[in-house]
Amino acid sequence: MNIFRLTGDLSHLAAIIILLLKIWKTRSCAGISGKSQVLFALVFTTRYLDLLTSFISLYNTTMKIIYIGCAYATVYLIYMKFKATYDGNHDTFRVEFLVVPVGGLAFLVNHDFSPLEILWTFSIYLESVAILPQLFMISKTGEAETITTHYLFFLGLYRALYLINWIWRFYFEGFFDMIAIVAGVVQTILYCDFFYLYVTKGESGSNKINPA
């Protein structure tokens, strides 16, 4: 464990909690893409199956349970509890165009052709594009609530910090996972446009960002 990975995990946790609290407190999921949240729940489910088979550390197990729990709680709030506030007309990204290619790629490019490994690879590839429905929805509505932009900032920051963690681990431990690194670079690049808006608009104090 190193500081970059720890801050990355805490940034990820912050994003997940910010979103869950935002929906719970405002009793509304307006502006939130339910499709992205379903994809994240799928990412955690396929990646953390090893919860059932192995124990790495208390930290590892606790965080995985929190991530899965919050992901499903968020999906529940969006599609069940506060369904009336779900903006289905703007959450129209065709997720099958993500899941099918990612599923195919996971079978073609992986470290080991075992079920657990293929599911892990699928989850890594899926996570790199899971935010697209959310970014697409914001571009369609033309705006995002401030709290949603903080959610996206911490979510984007987490994988950027993981990239630094992988540099650190390569240099100090010789650890190197090409699949996670390439997917992590793609994932972080997808946020670049948003990061630029977040920083520039954030300074002007405007309460909404308007992606191009």
Partner: peptide
């Protein structure tokens, strides 16, 4: 290749 030794990250 042991799965857990490879994937000890979240």
């Amino acid at each position: 290749r042991e799965f857990t030794s490879l994937h000890d990250e979240l």
